[in-house]
Computed example of a mutant assay.
Amino acid sequence: MNYLFHTAKQSYEHFASGKVLYNAPGTTSFPVRLASEIVQRCFHLLREKGVSGPYHLYDPCCGGGYMLTVIGLLHHDRINRITASDQDQAMVKFAAQNLSLLRPDGLAKRKEQVRELFELYQKPSHMEALQSADYLMGLVEQSSALQLDCFQADSTVDNSRDERCRNAHIILTDLPYGGIVDWISGSASPVHDFFESMHKIASPASTVLAVIADKSQSLRHPKFKRLQVQKIGKRHFALFEPLA
Rank of each mutant, 00 (worst) to 15 (best):
L4C: 13
F5T: 10
S11F: 05
S17H: 14
L21C: 02
Y22M: 08
Y22T: 10
S29C: 07
L34E: 05
Q40S: 15
C42Q: 08
L45I: 01
R47N: 01
E48H: 04
E48P: 00
G50C: 03
S52E: 15
G53M: 03
H56Y: 09
H56L: 11
Y66Q: 07
I71Y: 13
G72V: 09
G72A: 05
L73I: 09
L73M: 13
L74F: 11
D77T: 12
I79E: 12
N80I: 02
A84R: 04
S85Q: 08
Q87T: 03
D88P: 00
V92E: 07
F94M: 06
A95T: 00
A96C: 02
P104L: 06
A108E: 15
V114F: 12
V114D: 09
L117H: 13
F118R: 07
Q122N: 14
K123P: 00
S125A: 14
H126G: 00
A129T: 07
L130F: 04
A133C: 07
D134R: 02
D134P: 00
Y135I: 02
M137R: 10
A145D: 14
L148T: 10
D149T: 07
Q152S: 13
A153S: 15
V157F: 04
D158E: 12
S160V: 07
N167H: 13
H169V: 04
H169L: 03
H169E: 14
L172N: 09
T173D: 06
L175I: 11
G179S: 15
D182H: 10
I184W: 10
I184C: 13
S185V: 09
F194L: 02
H199S: 11
I201V: 15
A202I: 14
V208S: 00
A210E: 01
A210C: 01
V211C: 01
I212T: 14
K215Q: 15
S216R: 15
Q217S: 04
H221K: 00
P222S: 11
V229G: 14
Q230V: 15
K231S: 06
K231T: 04
G233M: 04
G233L: 06
F240I: 04
L243A: 05
